[in-house]
Design a protein around this nucleic acid. Structure first.
Length: 213
DNA sequence: CAGCGGATATTCT
DNA sequence: GAATATCCGCTGA
């Protein structure tokens, strides 16, 4: 049996590093989400890095707007964005203030509060599907834009915080380039996941959407 | 599991 | 109008 995960909160210095350093270091960590109905905990299994203003795939590439302001703030805070008119996604802001880099939490395993997550994820057909995908993860944890800007280092009463957990050894993780991004940026491994973990969604090549009108 | 279309907000053109 | 860091329900294997 494995040892119990370390429940020590991670300090702000954990986030205040280059995003490509923080992203793989998040795998196996424990995200705590405290709701009025009770706590949920998530073991992070898949993430993707976004390098701020220099990254064509990032929301920050076109500069600061009302919606992405949190990305330009201090590290250790949440950036929650609304996508495709229906879904939310949860990012953790990294690097120095103004760098506008962050890590998207793409998938994880719900280890505490699976009953609460199941109520919100009615269509999930198995526990491993509760947080298999960025928008599913946000839905399972009851994350919406009211949590945008939340400080994960604000102490045990914060609605979001990050515990040490069980960091994943380098030989147990995989990485790969993002799809849909050309140029020099495509050469970097932006996506990281725990190898063979059943909560990681299968790789899907990006395909342009057909027009609907 | 793979492939498809539909639903919708935000931003740039 | 077009693109996008998506998911769901359906079909078929």
């Amino acid at each position: 049996m494995s040892a119990r995960p370390d429940r020590t909160p991670l300090p702000r210095s954990f986030f205040d590093r280059p995003v490509l350093t923080v992203a793989p270091d998040l795998l196996g960590r424990t995200l705590v989400r405290r709701t009025t109905d009770g706590p949920l905990e998530l073991r992070i299994t898949e993430v993707e890095a976004y390098e701020g203003e220099t990254d064509p795939g990032s929301h920050a590439y076109r500069g600061r707007t009302a919606c992405n302001a949190s990305m330009f703030g201090p590290p250790g805070h949440a950036y929650v964005y609304f996508i495709y008119g229906m879904w939310f996604s949860l990012n953790l802001v990294c690097g120095p203030p103004g760098r506008a880099s962050g890590v998207l939490l793409r998938a994880g395993e719900v280890t505490v509060g699976a009953d609460l997550a199941t109520k919100r994820r009615v269509s999930a057909r198995s526990p491993r599907e509760l947080a298999k995908g960025p928008a599913r993860l946000a839905t399972a944890l009851d994350v919406d834009r009211s949590l945008d800007g939340t400080d994960l280092c604000a102490g045990p009463d914060s609605p979001l915080s990050l515990l040490t957990g069980t960091p994943t050894a380098a030989d147990l993780m995989s990485s790969g380039p993002r799809t849909g991004v050309g140029g020099a940026g495509a050469a970097h491994p932006y996506r990281f996941w725990i190898t063979n973990d059943p909560t990681v969604s299968p790789y899907r090549a990006h395909a342009p959407r057909r027009r609907s009108t």
